[in-house]
Each structure stands twice: as C-alpha cells, then as structure tokens.
Design a protein around this nucleic acid. Structure first.
Ligand SMILES: [Mn+2]
Ligand SMILES: [Mn+2]
Ligand SMILES: [Zn+2]
Ligand SMILES: [Zn+2]
Lengths: 137, 137
DNA sequence: TATTTAATTGTAATGGTTACGATTAGATAC
DNA sequence: GTATCTAATCGTAACCATTACAATTAAATA
C-alpha cells in the first residue's frame, strides 16, 4: 500500500483529501516496519499540526482501516495500526515485543480447520506470534 | 480445572483461602461455556459481597491467570477470563460473538511454522476465530 | 464566488483498569 | 484461645485510551 493509491481509494468513495489525512498516511509510509500505536501517530502529526484533535486521529485511523488501507490490532490494551500488506496474499505476523517490528508468516491456520467448524459462521480470525526478533536478542 | 484443585494450587504457593476468592472460582465453575468479562465477575460477586472492590477482582483474576487456573484474552477492549482448559492438550478457540460461547479447535498453527522463525525467540502466540455458533445463527 | 458537505477543532465525558493507604481476616505458633 | 504475622480486602481516587459532540473550517464542485 502507498499514499497515492490510498488517497485515490478514498476519493472514489467521496472522502476528501486533507492535509491531516495525508500526513497520517505519510507517517505510515515513512515507518512501515511494524504496528504503530494511535498515541504515536498523534504525537508525530502534532509536529505539523499542533492543534490536531483526538477525533481527527481516531476517525481517520478507523476510516483507513475500514477501507483496508491500514490493518489494525490491539497490543497491551492499545490499538495499533500499519499499512495493509497487499504485496502478497493473506498472511499473519510475528510481532517483536522489543522493537515492534514484524515479520510475515506465510501461513494461515484457517485453511487447516475449515471443516472442523461446520455449522459455524466464521467472520474473522486472529493469529499473532509474539517474541523477540534477531536484532533484539 | 475445578475449584478444589485451584485452591490447593494457591495454598501450595502460600496464598490464602478467602471467601471472595472462592466465590470467583465458583462463578467460573458455574458458567464455563466461554470467556467472561471482568465486569460480569464484579457484578456477580457483588450479590454476595456488596462492598467488593475493583482491586480484589483484578488482583484475583490476574493471580489466577498467572497461576494458570484461568486463561485470559481481550475482546472489545475488555479483559475476559475462563477456566484454563486442561482436559486435553494445548488448543485454541472459536469464540461466538453472539453468545460468547467457545468451541475448542484442536489445532495449533505453531507446529507448522516453527522452522520459518529460525533466529526468532517465540514467547507467546494467539489464535482465535470469531463468528456465530449454530445456536446464534 | 457560492454552495454543499466532509472534516477538523476544542473540550469534555466515558469506562475499563490501576494504585494505594488504612483496615480486616486467614494462617500459624504458642 | 490468644498473639502474631502477613496476605487480602476495602474505599476511593487517579489514570489513560478512547469516544462523543457542538461549533467552526476547509475541500470539492458547479
Ligand atoms: Mn505482512
Ligand atoms: Mn478449550
Ligand atoms: Zn488468516
Ligand atoms: Zn497454540
């Protein structure tokens, strides 16, 4: 995912191009090594827009996640976001609890268990691995 | 897991047997169909102990999770708990977003990806499936 | 430039969780 | 049973991420 592609996607849906929204996307493209907590986005964007409000941050992060520009997860009770990985197919992540960086894991357990959930309607799933990356060891 | 086994486990570690702690364990044994939010535990225990404090609830839930009497997860930004499943081996759960009931999924994806994380130290992992159970469909 | 509507701001409320000093009550020894 | 020790609880407030909303601003379009 990249900025222009994301903005085009929003434009098609009737969302406007704003400086704040653009800056949020920039932050993600500058540092796409892992999940970023909402708090960090806020602090970073405040350097350019000192009066930015919580509403703006969360509204945009949720919108971008809804539009699949970002993907989100919850770590330590805080919502984290990153650019949606669309270079390869659906996959999951190892998340380093030291530096926050992630490593793709090219395997989805849902393939293996579909038949065992006969009669159940599966809406979503979460598979995450936590630990320390080589750099943090 | 059952109440007496849990209390014995605590006793061995030097923790005391209290009425409040016992009641918490009872609540889990009465309703072990799925994860229960901390809030529900509080409300339930207040019927017997009207003045019970947050501190007591959380301290006990965390202690019991630490001692592997309970297992925990976070759903919708709230911590949920259930008796630790020790009747069979390590497994994961389908969680119904309608009624909260869970269904064991006898498959752990970690077996399949161990070699792909060479050089990484894996501390933990989470695999959960969300959707509607037959009863809620 | 006027109009329309999405977006932002400023600020307060919400709600789950955490913290802590004072008090109570299990457990053990005598 | 009483004294002693320390875990556990209580009462209450603080914390902090998130949510809410009325007033204002700014992007898009004609
Ligand atoms: Mn990825
Ligand atoms: Mn189970
Ligand atoms: Zn998957
Ligand atoms: Zn597992």
């Amino acid at each position: 995912m990249n900025i222009e592609k994301a903005i085009d996607k929003l434009k098609e849906k009737g969302y406007k191009r704003t400086k704040q929204r653009e800056r949020i996307l920039e932050i993600f493209s500058e540092q796409d090594q892992g999940y970023i907590p909402a708090k960090t986005i806020l602090k970073e964007i405040q350097k350019d827009f000192p009066g930015v409000s919580y509403d703006t941050i969360y509204r945009n992060l949720y919108l971008l996640a809804e539009e699949q520009v970002l993907e989100s997860t919850e770590l330590d009770g805080e919502k984290h976001f990153r650019f949606h990985c669309d270079t390869h197919g659906h996959h999951h992540h190892f998340i380093c609890t030291g530096c926050g960086k992630t490593k793709a894991v090219e395997f989805c357990p849902m393939d293996k268990i579909a038949q065992s959930l006969d009669g159940y309607a599966v809406d979503d799933h979460k598979f995450e691995i936590y630990g320390k990356c080589p750099g943090c060891l």
